[in-house]
């Protein structure tokens, strides 16, 4: 998931690559063959993937922060363990995804640098604050729910390492949405006060969750190429509709009201129709002006800067150890 803003292609890649190679490549993709890192691929395909996979990875890493905000305050030990395990999983998913991007010849260090210097984007959803414990449930239910909609088709992505990473991610993530929904269910059943907290969380997270699927198809110019390359399997609006259809009944089961006066069920199509998304807010948050953009990047930079001496120490020790072994080997000869 978390790949909303990257549908831009570089005009410089439109140069003439060998037509025969391009045709052969497209034929492999059409035949549902997986493309592997050392295979020939169009430069634009490679760039699109690096951008999409790394943006996805950055989103997982930044995504640790809003939920991490509640690890030390989880209300029970069971919830604390579940939340910590979930946030840890997100770190793991970021790691799998960085590894997939690295197969395309870009290092973890370069990718990290792109995130910290704001050159790379990450999902706008993580620029919203977690204000109450109910937000932890709302993120699991809505944000992970939206993520799953997006990630399941990515398991069939044409690029082998990305597809394999997504299979692992999807397998591990199956508990995330359930723990979020169960947490909210418990709150809604426990007291009116808690139910209000849950409603408040839904009010704040609903629209940003819909924005996670990215711009509307009419404004998303480049999805056609990603579809042809089988990097993308469904359009933004198709996935968004799936999410709304799945989520609305779940909200009703909790006894909650969705913060959308235009929401109504269309008997003919069998779909829930929703109101207009505030695309200005979306553009503003993606551009860096959401409630927490600065805090998120500052936290990542702080961790990176304060960890520099540790990474240096590990490398320095490794080198000393190699040299000592080498010296011992020479001495033994």
């Amino acid at each position: 998931m978390y790949t909303q803003a990257l549908n831009a292609r570089d005009a410089s890649d439109e140069r003439s690559e060998d037509a025969a190679l391009l045709a052969a490549f497209q034929a492999r993709v059409d035949a549902e063959e997986k493309i592997e890192p050392n295979d020939w691929m169009p430069e634009a395909y490679r760039k699109t993937l690096v951008r999409q996979i790394s943006q996805h990875a950055h989103s997982e890493i930044v995504g640790m922060l809003p939920e991490g905000n509640w690890i030390t305050r989880a209300p029970t030990l069971k919830r604390k363990a579940a939340l910590l395990a979930k946030v840890q999983d997100e770190g793991g998913h970021g790691l799998y995804l960085y590894s997939a991007a690295e197969t395309l010849g870009v290092s973890r260090e370069e990718l990290t640098e792109q995130l910290l210097s704001s050159k790379a984007k990450y999902s706008s959803i993580f620029n919203y604050p977690t204000l109450t414990w109910a937000d932890i449930g709302a993120i699991g239910w809505l944000v992970d729910g939206a993520a799953i909609m997006n990630q399941i088709p990515l398991c069939r992505c044409s690029f082998g390492p990305y597809s394999r990473a997504m299979i692992r991610v999807c397998k591990e993530e199956s508990f995330h949405q359930r723990q979020g929904y169960e947490l909210l269910l418990e709150m809604c059943r426990s007291s009116e006060e808690q139910k209000e907290m849950v409603q408040d969380a839904l009010n704040r997270w609903w629209w940003p969750s819909l924005m996670m699927f990215g711009p509307s198809d009419t404004d998303s110019k480049h999805s056609a190429q990603s579809m042809a390359w089988k990097i993308k399997r469904f359009t933004n609006d198709e996935l968004r509709q799936k999410f709304v259809d799945a989520t609305v009944p779940q909200a009703h089961y909790l006894g909650l009201t969705l913060p959308d006066p235009d929401l109504k069920f269309n008997e003919d199509t069998g779909h829930w129709e929703y109101g207009e998304i505030d695309w200005e807010e979306f553009a503003r948050v993606v551009a860096g002006n959401g409630p927490c953009n600065r805090e998120r990047l500052a936290a990542r930079r702080k961790a990176f800067d304060e960890g520099a001496w540790v990474r240096e120490a590990a490398l320095a020790y490794a080198e000393k150890r190699r040299n000592r072994r080498e010296a011992a080997r020479i001495a033994a000869e």
Binding site: M64, G68, I71, L84, A299, G307
Partner: peptide
């Protein structure tokens, strides 16, 4: 969690 020197 989320603030360590490396992802690993």
């Amino acid at each position: 969690c989320g603030h360590a020197p490396t992802l690993e």
